[in-house]
């Protein structure tokens, strides 16, 4: 175990990518743009010694989709790289080539939010069942189940 990352180190390393905030004692967040995501992740891995991806969290703010890539390493500090995607064209190159575990998280996000990760080797359904309509993404804030649509499961007789 190494000592936790300090504010100065994270600021100095990451300031070229965007706003750096210290959210909590051991949590940092870098807000960057989708085109600089790959470089930011590379820097987090190489210069801040973050060896593993904890998860990719997603949120729908009603104006944008937010993606948070949380990393950590032996310094026990969480470094989050945050990007925003427009709701109309939620598309982003996949990270699964440089971050192997991102592959399964991206499939999940694709199911639930409809964000397209271009270049993903198999962006197929993983969480939603095979009967679920392709163009409906349940965790979007504006999604409402439609009574006439069949979402899977067993069809009951007489209905």
């Amino acid at each position: 175990m190494t000592s936790p990352l300090t504010r100065d180190v994270v600021m100095e390393t990451m300031k070229e990518f965007g706003i750096v905030e210290q959210v909590r004692a051991n949590r940092f967040r870098i807000t960057t743009t989708p085109d600089r995501l790959r470089d930011a992740v590379k820097t987090v891995q190489e210069s801040l010694a973050c060896e593993r991806l904890v998860t990719i969290s997603t949120a729908d703010t009603r104006q944008m989709f937010e993606l948070h890539y949380h990393f950590t390493g032996q310094h026990r500090t969480i470094v989050t790289v945050t990007i925003e995607l427009p709701r109309e064209t939620p598309e982003l190159p996949t990270m699964s080539d440089m971050l192997l575990p991102a592959g399964i998280y991206e499939r999940q996000i694709h199911d639930l939010f409809g964000i397209v990760f271009s270049g993903h080797p198999g962006l197929k359904k993983i969480l939603l069942n095979e009967d679920w309509p392709d163009n409906e993404h349940p965790l979007r804030k504006d999604w409402k189940p439609d009574e006439k649509t069949f979402y899977g499961g067993t069809k009951q007789e007489g209905r």
């Binding site: 399964i104 639930l112 993983i126 969480l127 939603l128 069942n129 965790l139």
Partner: peptide
């Protein structure tokens, strides 16, 4: 993999 069999929409 297909993990869809127990998705219950708890997050929603």
């Amino acid at each position: 993999l297909n993990l869809s069999y127990t998705h219950r929409g708890i997050e929603k």
